[in-house]
Amino acid sequence: MADPGGEREVRLVVNGVERVAAAEPRLLLSDFLRHRLGLTGTHVGCEHGVCGACTVLLDGEPVRSCLVFAVQAEGAELRTVEGLAGEDGELGPVQRAFHEAHGMQCGFCTPGFLISLTALLEERPGASEEELVDALSGNLCRCTGYANILAAARAARDQAAERA
């Protein structure tokens, strides 16, 4: 095999759009999204799988993109914060909830929280309090103290439950 550690093409679908870019095997999916595809809304906070800022949806499931190599996402369907707004361009319900509850300050960790909560509510629209906390406790926020994030999550859950 020629240069097995070298770059190869990675083809995947991000936010409904097929994207192709080169990646050597060691390129983290977080860096691939941010620096190869220019999708800088996904943030990087620790690169060892604790802070959750880099959370994206990979085939519908929330994953830490700093713990996935881009080559592992070949053929996958990804959703990032850039794909959360509605088709009409309006903010989605989870995004709106964070705005209305003042669930964000510096906004750096926010995309990860939005994705984690989206993943939960798409699977369990009527998620319990315990499930909300479980879904969000894998994301660190240093500004808000979480109270308003939890308030936003409850509001988004109530809306999702109503729609479901």
Partner: peptide, 10 residues
């Protein structure tokens, strides 16, 4: 501030 940040456009 929120809208840009919520869209990943920070």
């Amino acid at each position: 501030e929120d809208e840009r940040l919520l869209r990943g456009e920070g």
